[in-house]
Design a protein around this nucleic acid. Structure first.
Lengths: 229, 229
DNA sequence: CTTCGTATGATTGTATACAATTATACGATT
DNA sequence: AATCGTATAATTGTATACAATCATACGAAG
């Protein structure tokens, strides 16, 4: 009886399809491919040294993730995230992160709580020094812990999707020392609420946290953050 | 300049892949395939008269929708919806339907409001007479109007997914005259709030509506509703 | 000069062939 | 009799070939 890695989820690294999927997804999120760029099966295939078949399968998945749009018999095009989309995502996320925090109160493990504490402690160090790369990593990880702790595969999956979706935008939202410090303080509040099993408070704080992040982004100019320069 | 049908979204009916996708999805949701059933590419392909290629592509999409799990080099297995999943979905939906109703206040058109009104009027007729099939249809349509009216592609897509996901369960939740009438009354309340552009109230009522639906389902025995007899 | 239509090329859609992996059956060994 | 190993079958993973569709270019008609 073999146990299969649950983390594989969708995109096993070891199949060609999985490799293509991950690579293209990363290239879209990192901004290598821009809005409305046409992705050609042969070109991508040659670049990665595979045939069209795994590329096509990866494309179908990317379409469902909303990263590309496939027009039958025509081609695959990178779907841009509009400013309205970003706003929608943050509003949706704020609701769902609240739910997630509330559920985490019931299901979080001692280890996860400890990792949160460590995360916040370390983030304080980097926040004060303006180490934005590390802050972005730590912020992502903090939310990731919460997603795991809520103990709902569906909510976890949903939130992770949105989180990835606005990744490039999100990096910029932490790009001031003030916001980094405030953000970490908000994490601290959420952490304490979860630790104390105060679901209502955790919900409120997590909801507010995402709202704040959005407001900050708007203040700093969503337009610049959004466009790829 | 050709205009492409936005409703196509992902699953155009006219490609083999789209047909396979829709068929298998429907068969899973309708209960033809049960939890942990193994779906074989060749078998599905022969059943629909297509080769393995479009079947494989459809499978990759179904995996991302969470309806099947693909284990590399092994097979595709139907992932069941557990009772916990159903609860999660209702809780998530309750939050998102609230958001949806609130947003609909800003964006709903006169035509959509009129269709809602008609929907409620007609539903009153069928509710009192215990026409559960029609009620189910009307209920789905009511929510569908709201999804369209919220004017957010992302939220609309998200809600529609979950709605589909619990379809078989949902049908049973309307299977009493009392619940049908109560449900329609709740729709009426949501409709009026949206009509009066009272976003806060619309949010609350829609949130409550989904909660009520869930509670009713639990009361009527989620276990029987969930299992395929 | 513009416009329409056809021809050509490029790209996607599908089917099939082959390779790699996994499951099963059966027999040999202990 | 139980267990291990090998051979065989079944199934998925990938590559390639062919068909269908779409885009482009170019020339003829007005």
């Amino acid at each position: 009886m073999q146990e299969y890695d649950l983390k594989q989820e969708v995109t096993d690294k070891y199949s060609l399809r999985g490799r293509v999927f991950n690579k293209v997804r990363e290239d879209i999120l990192s901004g290598k491919y821009r809005e409305n760029d046409e992705l050609k099966e042969i070109a991508i295939g040659e670049e990665l040294g595979v045939s069209r078949t795994p590329v096509r399968e990866a494309f179908r998945q990317l379409e469902l993730e909303g990263l590309i749009q496939i027009i039958p018999n025509k081609g695959a095009y990178v779907t841009g995230i509009t400013m309205d989309d970003v706003k929608d995502i943050y509003m949706i996320r704020s609701k769902l992160e609240g739910l997630c925090a509330a559920w985490a109160c019931e299901h979080i493990t001692k280890e996860q709580l400890e990792e949160m504490e460590e995360n916040i402690y370390l983030a304080k160090f980097h926040a004060e020094r303006g180490h934005f790369e590390q802050m972005s990593e730590l912020d992502s990880r903090f939310h990731e812990i919460m997603y795991e702790a809520c103990h709902s595969k569906l909510l976890e999956h949903n939130l992770r999707d949105y989180h990835q979706y606005v990744m490039r935008v999100r990096k910029k939202t932490l790009s001031t020392v003030e916001r980094s410090i405030a953000c970490n303080a908000e994490h601290q509040g959420i952490y304490e609420a979860i630790r104390d099993k105060n679901a209502k408070l955790a919900d409120e704080l997590a909801t507010l946290h995402v709202h704040k992040a959005y407001e900050n982004m708007v203040k700093n100019g969503l337009r610049e953050a959004y466009s790829n320069e």
